[in-house]
Design a protein around this nucleic acid. Structure first.
Length: 813
RNA sequence: GCCGAAGUGGCGGAAUAGGCAGACGCGCUUGACUCAAAAUCAAGUGGGGCUUUGACUCCAUGCCGGUUCAACUCCGGCCUUCGGCACCA
């Protein structure tokens, strides 16, 4: 009988669903494992990246079920977002219809892969029963003072016709459409994630199960810098201006003062007759149109700032490299100890004043570049001779007493802009009333439903604003006429809490039940792409911390272990429509089988690395599965051999292979997550069986049965269908997935005879097979080996190194 | 520029605690089966040397050096590639 996966896979997928094998049990007393993969955006089809992500998760989930855990392994849809609207505009289909039909299709594709999800817990963020609670979260943040409306410089994507968060702008381009974004000043809704900057940073240290590079990326993004704010007086007008610096120790070296072209100080300086209005204004308009962003430009304003520590007057410049949105939008320029200031000073002929000297450098030496390292203070009056790290503190303390400075920590992280001027998202449950102002929609009135008949063609205003029926409402407070907020929420809000919803997906009273969350959370294994290292993963951590503070959960981090898989490549580059190098999963499944595709994806590369697609590699996996099929068909009749069957060395070998393989596969799955080597172990094992098939047929039935059954259990997380079919052919009525994961016994892994490596001066000279385990005896025996003798000729033995049951190294002079 | 990861056959990759470098798979070569092909099976496959073709020998894990009886593995320095951040004061 030939391996016919079309029939087998359909048969078992149906039966597993009937039996409910993959359902998580709401029995909160047993040990649990929450295995989660990042849910997909329902774009239409599952692609290879999804396959990799979900097959990896499936192996882990199935393994944990074998180990007796109550496993939660759910799937859902990150279903709000722009592509639905764009498709709607292009093809005249309603975003909801487009989305739901994509979900339908992709669910089918995932089921065809045999991924063991608990489909009863499926969710979609665009479903009102879900986004009701997304709105609830908005209100929670609003109540806690973490959601506010503010005017700020924001990123506007002209292609997507909406604003985006800083996290969504990569190299000045929109994360979704890769087009350049524009700056706009707009009033928008923000989440105050900066309130959590310190905790988001510190708690990374409590996540040993996260990859270091992801934590580093988050640390960089949060961008903490410790320093001080120092007040400079403007000489010509009566005005104090704060600057932020991480180097207060270099304060005496400040030779100029600079503000950003967007600084409000520029306006205020106009009151002075000395202000060089024309130069400054033409400079600003020049800088705004300048294309070379890396070139530093500046212009003297005509005014001066007074250094608070020594009363020195230094010129105030407007400089394009001073950022308005970081620190205070003003800096002190210390050319001697900051490379940017140094380059700028050289360009405009500003003085360079050394105030920190590394040991051994004469103070009069002219600098070739800024010295940014440690040293001792000079030219700094009463602080001279202090080590700079100490001076940092002393100078701030000195000025603090005079009310001219205070220690300050700045973060690069900015508040999270969450408004989107688009239709297909969760409404923001806010009402504007002429009498009462901004009024949150009461919880009992949730959800604020998206109007179905909205004109969602994007324009300069949100599509919801064009729906009279939606906009016009009554004020929940005074009952008077009021207007609804017409922006929708960023979709990253929907995905910031979905992992909580899976624990209790049908709860109509709350976003999740306390007991369910307490039992299932945190997620034990979270698997997904590294592209969410900052975005989704930072936002989710933020949400969890807010919930913790509000008393809804008793943990502060949602994902205990995080795994970021590598990308799937074709011809060395990521698969993409524009390159036309996409390999679709479905035709591969049709041509071979789901098991073949699963096996290839797992075998071709370790999970964290990039995976290069190979048609020949898929062929190889297909051949392997066929070999397994034939091997089992040939051997299964012999599992009924009696106990009087031939007892030969092969039995010992079979037992040894079994225990070694169990150990290797188990450790590869759970400790190293190297599924490629787990599979190669199974290949080696099956090669051994195939190479010795005539002898294997003659062993005792119990031993053969144990060999075949153990093999199938180890194989089943990777290729569940073929394993289940062969399991049934071995006479089992119960599913293989109700089995226990096999144990191994190190004593049974030992070879009676083993191979001893013999080296002379660290070079391999011979190998001998022996059952002798006493290394002292072997030490002298190997000296008599002819090959060893040859290399010892005329040399004196200085030492003999032995590694038990492994190696002997003879060292000569 | 700063931070992080990685460099091993023709290719994907293995070597888990410093102990046989190249497991497993792909590809390739040869053979068997076949009218033929496919499929399958068998053998071989890092590079070089040979006036002993061998149970031979030398070289080889990005480069240079070090530690060690022994280094893909540890240490120091460099090179390259990829990823992240980037006028963040």
């Amino acid at each position: 009988m030939d391996y016919d996966p079309g029939i087998i896979e359909e048969k078992w997928q149906r039966r597993w669903a009937q039996e409910g094998l993959d359902k998580a049990k709401d029995d909160f007393s047993s040990p649990k494992a929450y295995i989660l993969e990042m849910f997909p955006y329902p774009s239409g089809d599952i692609h290879m990246g999804h396959v990799r992500n979900y097959v990896l998760g499936d192996v882990i989930a199935r393994y944990h079920r074998f180990k007796g855990y109550n496993v939660l392994h759910p799937m859902g849809w990150d279903a709000f977002g722009l592509p639905a609207e764009n498709a709607a505009i292009k093809r005249g289909i309603h975003p909801a219809r487009w989305t739901w039909s994509n979900i339908e299709n992709m669910r089918k594709q995932l089921k065809r892969l045999g991924i063991s999800y608990d489909w009863d817990r499926e969710l979609a963020t665009c479903d009102p029963t879900y986004y009701k609670w997304t709105e609830w979260f908005f209100l929670l943040l609003y109540k806690r003072g973490l959601a506010y409306r503010g005017r700020a410089k924001v990123n506007w994507c002209p292609t997507c016709k909406t604003v985006t968060a800083n996290e969504e702008v990569i190299d000045g381009k929109c994360w979704r459409c890769h087009q350049p974004v524009e700056e706009r000043y707009l009033e928008q809704w923000f989440f105050k994630i900066t309130d959590y900057a310190e905790r988001l940073l510190n708690d990374l240290d409590r996540l040993p199960g996260w990859p270091e590079h992801v934590k580093t990326m988050q640390r960089n993004w949060i961008g903490k810098s410790v320093g001080a704010e120092i007040i400079f007086k403007i000489k010509e007008i009566d005005k104090d201006v704060k600057i932020f610096t991480t180097r207060p120790d270099t304060l005496f070296g400040a030779t100029f003062f600079a503000v950003s072209p967007d600084s409000s100080l520029i306006n205020e300086m106009k009151s002075s007759p000395l202000f060089r209005r024309e130069e400054v204004e033409s400079f600003i308009s020049y800088v705004k149109s300048a294309t070379d962003e890396n070139e530093r430009f500046g212009v003297f304003t005509g005014l001066h700032a007074i250094n608070p520590v020594n009363g020195e007057e230094i010129p105030i410049l407007v400089a394009n490299y001073v950022l308005q949105e970081y620190g205070t939008g003003a800096i002190m320029g210390v050319p001697a100890h900051d490379q940017r200031d140094f380059d700028f000073a050289k360009k405009y002929g500003l003085p360079v004043k050394t105030v920190i000297l590394p040991p051994g450098r004469p103070p009069e030496e002219e600098l070739e570049s800024a010295y940014e390292g440690e040293g001792v203070l000079v030219n700094s009056l009463m602080f001279n001779g202090l080590y700079n790290e100490i001076a940092k503190v002393k100078i701030v303390e000195y000025l603090e007493k005079k009310g001219l400075a205070e220690p300050k920590i700045n973060y690069r992280l900015k508040d999270w802009l969450i408004s989107r001027q688009r239709y297909w998202g969760s409404p923001i449950p806010i009402v504007y009333c002429d009498n009462c102002g901004v009024v949150p929609v009461p919880e009992e009135d949730l959800p604020v439903l998206l109007p179905e008949d909205a004109d969602f063609a994007p324009g300069s205003i949100s599509p919801l604003a064009k729906s009279e029926e939606f906009v016009n409402t009554t004020c929940p407070k005074c009952g008077g006429p009021a207007k609804r907020e017409t922006d929708t929420m960023a979709t990253f809000i929907c995905s910031s809490w979905y992992y909580l919803r899976y624990t209790d997906p049908h709860n109509s009273k709350m976003p999740f039940g306390k007991d369910a969350v307490k039992y299932w959370m945190p997620v034990d294994r979270y698997i997904g792409g590294v592209e969410h290292a900052v975005l989704h993963l930072l936002y989710s951590r933020f949400f969890t911390k807010v919930l913790y503070d509000a008393g809804y959960v008793d943990f502060e981090e949602p994902f205990t272990n995080l795994f970021t898989q590598g990308m799937v490549l074709k011809d060395g580059v990521a698969m993409s429509k524009s390159l036309g190098n996409i390999v679709e999963p479905s035709p591969i499944i049709e041509k071979y089988s789901a098991d073949t595709l699963r096996l290839f994806i797992l075998f071709a590369s370790p999970p964290e690395k990039e995976l290069e697609w190979s048609d020949e590699g898929v062929d190889g996996m297909w051949r392997f599965l066929n070999r397994i099929w034939r091997l089992f068909n040939e051997l299964i009749p012999y599992v009924n051999n009696g106990d009087d069957a031939l007892d030969s060395g092969i039995e010992r070998e079979l037992i040894r292979w079994r225990h070694i393989s169990v150990k290797r596969v188990t450790e590869d799955i759970i400790e190293r997550f190297h599924l490629n080597t787990a599979i190669s172990t199974l290949m080696e094992w099956s090669n051994f069986l195939g190479d010795n098939i005539d002898a294997v047929k003659k062993v005792k039935g119990v031993i053969l049965r144990d060999t075949l059954e153990t093999f199938l259990v180890l194989l089943s997380p990777f290729t569940p269908h073929i394993a289940e079919e062969l399991w049934e052919m071995l006479g089992h009525k119960e599913s293989i997935f109700r089995e226990k994961w096999p144990e191994y016994d190190p004593n049974l892994m030992k070879q009676f005879e083993y191979e001893l490596v013999v080296q002379v001066n660290g070079k391999l000279r011979d190998k001998i097979r022996t059952d002798e385990r006493d290394m002292e005896k072997l030490k002298y025996a190997v000296l008599e080996l002819p090959k060893v003798k040859r290399f010892l000729q005329g040399k004196e033995i200085k030492n003999i190194i032995t590694v038990p049951e492994k190696l002997i190294n003879i060292v000569t002079d």
